[in-house]
Design a protein around this nucleic acid. Structure first.
Lengths: 231, 231
DNA sequence: CGGGTAATTATGCAAGCGTATAATTACCCG
DNA sequence: CGGGTAATTATACGCTTGCATAATTACCCG
């Protein structure tokens, strides 16, 4: 009658925390914030609810940690493919934009998850700061890529910081907006369509042609919005 | 001791419904969905909670109605200033973009409110359909304005539907993205800065100069991102 | 091998939730 | 003026929530 099998396993703290965060993210993305109750999260992570209190002083703490985790991963997934130093700056910028507008970054789960968090930045100060930080981080990476691409293209004068800032804000908005729309209404766009639009648009905004042409044997040259008058 | 004052007033149905919807919107924007409980909404609208059930079969019903109300108002507030038929198409487009990126449309309250709703489009079918409808409505208005502006500017060939669609998607993304960022981090941008960026960017995307110049005595010509190569 | 300790479970509680139903009551109409 | 009725209030129920606290128990170390 005596059961010798251990009733639970003791895991290292960081690992358990990570498991709880992942469980929270899964639940929020599937059922919204309302579905991410302490009990549901614990069940998903295969622990009892008391353990959450042991690692996070409050539920809000856990949610905040989950937000940070998600946003950092989004940024990383977008930036990583563009990190190769041995390609042209233009290619790095192109890769960055395309990565941000394709799976797995552009995804219903990610978008609704993000929206859940955003809705709380007005109330929750921790969330607000987290959003500010991740936003600036992302925009700054984008600005660096744009600057490098402009310099590489040999613009007559070195890019004015003020213009650069505005280009970054605008390009960021394009990416964010397309990402959101693609995530919210996946069936409304063809595969790769939003990435293509993103490249054309950012190209028009910063004054460079960003169409991908090196990797693939280049499709019909002007099948994508040929904004007249761009470089 | 007998109190002759009536204990409550009977109001017309539509008026009561409207009051409940407004109360719900106020609460969601202030405290997020979690704060919009049946009791809190009723208190805000100065009625007892039972009345909500009398007008909306379920709480979800009320929330859904509130979403529709909010989105339609956003669209209307953006489109109304651009509805004058007696100005140029270019001016109408300019007005539309500027209105969407200035108060009261661009506002923390509106953005967090919108985010609260968006986070539920994955779970809730009614919300999903509502989002789809409002998105297409907004984008379609934008596409018409762009088409008119292009024709008016005398583009060599009449705008190809496919290009037009992509321009509308991209311009919509710019507006959405800037609107979101401006609402989420109001202190990060100067007054009018995002509207200005929006005009420049959409201009670059569709190949027209959209800088406002007629109404105000035109500021220093190139103090705004002079994207090289645009018309 | 055997004790100490921190990870984990088990249990409980008070508050708030959405919803249902019955009791009031303001207002309309003859 | 007086009854009928729908708008509104009042009350209650069952359930879930986040959090706290006490009881277990797996694992490490001498």
């Amino acid at each position: 009658m005596t059961d010798l099998r251990p009733k639970f396993r003791r895991e290292p703290a960081t690992q358990r925390k990570e498991a709880l965060i992942q469980a929270a993210l899964a639940l929020i993305s599937e059922q919204g914030v309302a579905g991410a109750t302490v009990r549901a999260i614990a069940k998903r992570a295969d622990v009892t609810q008391g353990l959450i209190r042991h690692y996070f002083t409050t539920k809000e703490d856990l949610i905040s940690a989950a937000y940070e985790r998600h946003m950092n991963q989004m940024t990383e997934l977008t930036a990583a493919p563009a990190a190769h130093a041995d390609v042209s700056a233009r290619t790095r910028l192109t890769t960055f934009i395309a990565a941000g507008l394709t799976s797995p970054v552009m995804d219903t789960r990610s978008v609704t998850l993000w929206a859940s968090f955003i809705s709380s930045i007005r109330t929750d100060d921790a969330m607000r700061k987290m959003h500010q930080q991740t936003y600036y981080d992302f925009r700054n990476r984008l600005e660096c890529l744009i600057r490098d691409a402009l310099i590489e293209a040999g613009t007559p004068t070195p890019p004015d910081p003020k213009n650069l800032r505005q280009m970054a804000i605008a390009s960021n908005a394009v990416i964010d907006g397309l990402w959101m729309e693609g995530g919210a209404l996946p069936e409304a766009f063809d595969t790769g369509e939003l990435a293509q639009i993103g490249l054309t648009s950012v190209g028009a905004i910063i004054g460079l042609d960003l169409q991908e042409q090196a990797t693939t044997p280049l499709p019909t040259p002007s099948q994508v919005t040929p904004t007249k008058g761009q470089l």
